[in-house]
Amino acid sequence: MSAYFAFAKSAVMTQLAYRNEVWANMFGKVVQVFARVAIWLAIYTGATSIEGITLQQMITYALLGGIVTGAIRYETIISMIGRALQTGDVAVWLLKPVSFPLYIIVSELGRAAYRLVVLVIPTVAVVALVYGMLPPASIFHGVMFLAYLALAYAIIALISTLFGLVSFWLLTSFSLEWLMQALLNLLSGQFIPFWFFPKTFGDIAAHLPFAWIVYYPAAVWLGRMDVAGTLIYFGIGCGWALLMAFGVAWLWRSASTRVIVQGG
């Protein structure tokens, strides 16, 4: 176990070595979040609430939406796996008594924790100061939000790893990054919450694993779900995570028994 903790720590140390990047990223992030809020300001012009959602709730949703996707880089996970396959570096990992997918996941989670602290939380705080942000609906919702947040990181990391492993067969990871981006934008609720989706489509999206990345954490914070619903959907989310963990283990196993080691 100490190996995986060390991987996460060394990923953070590597980030520190490139800390000039932080300021450029911070600026980009702030602009992005302002833009997202500006869209909702424009949509709400002349209206106090749409479909029962107030502007304040919507701004809060937009701010919370960036907490997971702003900190973790799914594309890093996909391209790291893709690159390891393309360069043959995956061979090196097959020689070690550790799991390569788990190494990739904990390394990115380490970097995500770092970005969360130095990048995402400051950005959200700045925008919240300008436009205001609602507190969690209750203490219960606040606590559950944290649990959902942890689950969200696990789920996005697992989905990205699944996508990355598929490149074993496709021998390209670039197209998978695009696919992941498209699915994430639409199905996580990052751009538009499911409340504004057509009923059937919204219902389907609300039960796909992407929903746990943005939609559910924010919905819990805003108190859009009652106590029972909050707990039940947390259970369903854990089920998805477990299923995907098995998927990763299975894909990795079948991929590593048919490795094509490129470059001799």
């Binding site: 100490s2 060390a6 060394s10 043959g88 090196v92």
Partner: peptide
């Protein structure tokens, strides 16, 4: 295992840190 043409060290880390990761991987 040592590959002449494929590094197993961590590119961005000092040699000592790579060794330390190795120590943890192999307990």
């Amino acid at each position: 295992v040592v590959f002449g043409q494929r590094s197993q060290l961590w590119w961005d880390l000092p040699v000592r840190d790579s060794f330390d990761l190795h120590r943890r991987i192999y307990d």
